[in-house]
Design a protein around this nucleic acid. Structure first.
Lengths: 343, 343
DNA sequence: CTGAAAGCGCTAACAA
DNA sequence: TTGTTAGCGCTTTCAG
């Protein structure tokens, strides 16, 4: 494959000139310019980006780590990020961590070697010291969906605590008292936040928490199915199940139906995320909506601010806190409940 | 950031030795080894992958181009690819082309400069000469979901023609004669194949093709919605709609329902792909299933075969042809129809 | 088992 | 406006 030297030789100019037509076209006379361009064309010259990156110390690549590409939430985030990255002329390295901390660490290691210009971590399970390692290497970083209290870093997240609190409260308002919670992976901050919100709402209502009504799920349909089955086998099964994400809620719906029970007649189900499927399933799922595409967009913008200001020695460490929104649909039996209560 | 020379100096060895402990550990004595390793650790040394790639002429990165990351089909493909790439120690550059040919070309350009070790194109809209350009650069390539008759390249695809033919035939068998088709983007080979399958089944049944029953969609929910609305406004609306993918079928379902009609009572809807949503919507969607995760897996394996054999001057140009499968669910009214016909 | 040095392809400072 | 050349950080050949 032709390189810059061969092009230069064939065009009868120096490599510097060839480099200039690529990088600073205005500093080169137009006859030379045309000559070089023509030569490149003729030789099918494709500049070697690796060499370029090495010389410039900039790879024009950012990395996105997500826990599960099969959860429709993350493609939305990815879309938001891609939209701004592509416009900036950057490529995205996609890393699917499968909710595994060690795979996530593994990837971070690779990314640091690849000298990516920035990293976006979504729902990261990394320990603070691992995250600190990224910061030590001085590579711009944005966390999505995770708030680390005492760390200087860009973060954009939804108020999971509040969302879960509101959801649980809503269930209580419409008359449920026996509410179970299928959590996400307990090792995730996000799951803990949601659990806290759930617990607070329960306790504020003077209901006592039951430990066997809190079940750890895996953030996937399967886990919701299993969790719901487990709850149904209990001597005192709950009247309502709050799943920490929509995928698990959908799994739970499946489980309940397969037991011959109706939703919300026999048992109510609610989720979290408001993925598209949520309004497609039968009954339509009551859930908490978070603006994921927008989160991706914002995260990417923050990242590029950091990247572009990197040489100015500035520091951008913003925490952007987005409010979730309760979407009341059919699966919680809202209308029936309200009717019962007020008539 | 520390580089190999600094590590070498501090450890009191040559850069060659440091390089060796990284790349050929067995060629270095164990005391030296330990010393160097300790020094690296102490200095927080992270090897520069760009320099490494430049020297080795290998980036350990492959690229995946998909038309729409928000279509759940593609994350499945991506998962299949990621599963094998990660195991091989490769990273994936994700390129979302938004079904736009120029964005796809754009990306290919960037990828060639980045010297990716291989490219996987899904549902590509590239012209043959653009694809040929990739092959000319001698970079391994796999096409997913597109069959180019006279080209030497690895391809894995579903038999779209057959799938569409079977689907249409099934509708005809259960008694429909007035069947419309919402196509994908007409510029995609895949869409053309499906259209051909539809047309053949219609004609074989002695039904005459109606041009205003063939509507171009955009492969997204929106397009299905619009297409169905348009069909409903016709003086003679069809009894059944075959959408070229599930997303459009779901949009069509929405459109029909919003017109106060029932499915399949008033009109039948069928799709193509069998994404998870298909069995979640009401009524559950009759569709054609293609093994997308597996396609990703196979494509990745083919790609790595090419990559690994590249230096052996071998050529791998396999065409892998997978059979789609008809999934009969509720939206086509199969049972009702069969009952009507045979009772 | 180890070191010196050439080379991967490009950019940019400096000189002309 | 253009050319010469010293890096960027690594791998590997060749010599010892």
């Amino acid at each position: 494959m032709a390189n810059i030297r061969e092009v230069a030789k064939k065009a009868g100019v120096s490599v510097a000139t060839v480099s200039r037509v690529l990088n600073h076209p205005h500093t080169v006379s137009s006859p030379t310019m045309e000559l070089v361009l023509a030569t490149m064309e003729k030789m099918q010259y494709t500049p070697n980006g690796l060499a370029r990156s090495l010389a410039l110390n900039r790879s024009s690549t950012i990395a996105l780590l997500i826990p599960n590409i099969l959860n429709p939430l993350y493609p939305q985030v990815a879309k938001g990020i891609e939209d701004v990255a592509h416009q900036k002329g950057y490529n995205i390295l996609l890393c699917n961590t499968e909710e595994k901390q060690d795979k996530e660490q593994d990837y971070v290691e690779m990314l640091l070697e690849k000298r990516v210009d920035g990293i976006i971590l979504t729902a990261s399970q990394l320990k603070e010291k691992d995250i600190q390692k990224i910061k030590n290497q001085n590579i711009p970083l944005v966390l999505i969906g995770r708030n680390i209290e005492n760390m200087e870093a860009n973060m954009v997240f939804t108020d999971y605590y509040m969302g879960a609190y509101q959801m649980t409260q809503h269930l209580i308002e419409i008359g449920y008292r026996e509410i179970a919670h299928i959590t996400g992976l307990k090792c995730q901050e996000e799951s803990k936040e949601k659990l806290r919100g759930y617990e607070r709402a329960i306790q504020e209502a003077g209901i006592s928490l039951k430990n066997n009504w809190i079940i750890e799920g895996d953030n996937e349909i399967e886990g919701g199915y299993l969790g719901a089955k487990k709850l149904l086998r209990l001597k005192e099964p709950p009247q309502a199940i709050f799943a920490a994400n929509d995928l698990m809620a959908i799994g739970a719906i499946d489980a309940i139906k397969s037991n011959g029970l109706t939703i919300p007649g026999d048992i109510a189900i609610v989720g979290f995320d408001d993925i598209k499927m949520a309004s497609l399933v039968e009954p339509k799922l009551t859930t908490i909506s978070q603006p994921v595409y927008k989160m991706g967009l914002i995260a990417a913008r923050l990242l590029f601010e950091s990247i572009e200001s990197k040489h100015n020695e500035e520091e951008f460490n913003q925490k952007i806190f987005l409010q979730p929104k309760l979407m009341v649909r059919k699966s919680c039996g809202h209308e029936d409940r309200v009717r019962e209560i007020f008539n």
